[in-house]
């Protein structure tokens, strides 16, 4: 039994660095996907949705990958603080942005959008 625990510990020590790197890479790819959405979507409010991918799943996966590779428990505490701050601040920041745009009178496009990026008339440009 003790042998098994030792073996499991060793395997974990060898496997966690490639695993953490893979999780980091996957999170970074999700961030890029969110950015692609920011480039493609037709108006400000829809771009906000694409940016929130970066803020939630991308950031979470990158931080989780870093936590898998963490050298000490101090780093784990710091990563957890970062995750908490990111979750609280990104949602509040998104809401502040949307609320500011709405208060300033930027009208969202409502209804189905068929083809990409050809509707270039923008209203409420300040």
């Amino acid at each position: 039994m003790a042998d098994f625990v030792l073996l499991a510990g060793n395997t974990w020590e060898t496997v966690r660095f490639p695993l953490g790197g893979a999780v980091c890479l996957f999170g970074a790819i999700l961030c890029v996907i969110g950015t692609i959405g920011v480039m493609r979507f037709p108006d400000f409010y829809t771009r906000l949705h694409a940016a929130s991918i970066t803020d939630t799943s991308g950031a979470f996966l990158v931080l989780a990958g870093m936590a898998l590779m963490a050298p000490s428990w101090l780093v784990l505490v710091k990563l957890f603080c970062m995750l908490g701050f990111l979750v609280l601040t990104s949602a509040t920041g998104s809401h502040a942005l949307a609320n500011a745009a709405h208060t300033a009178g930027l009208q969202p496009k409502i209804g189905p959008v068929g083809q990409a990026g050809h509707q270039d008339h923008e209203e409420g440009d300040h």
Partner: peptide, 23 residues
């Protein structure tokens, strides 16, 4: 096109900067 798009981009850029700093 609008000012808010720019602020959104800068905000998202900041989030990515945090991740880049950690990595």
């Amino acid at each position: 096109p609008t000012m808010y798009d720019r602020v959104l981009a800068v905000n998202s850029f900041g989030t990515k900067t945090v991740l880049v700093l950690g990595l």
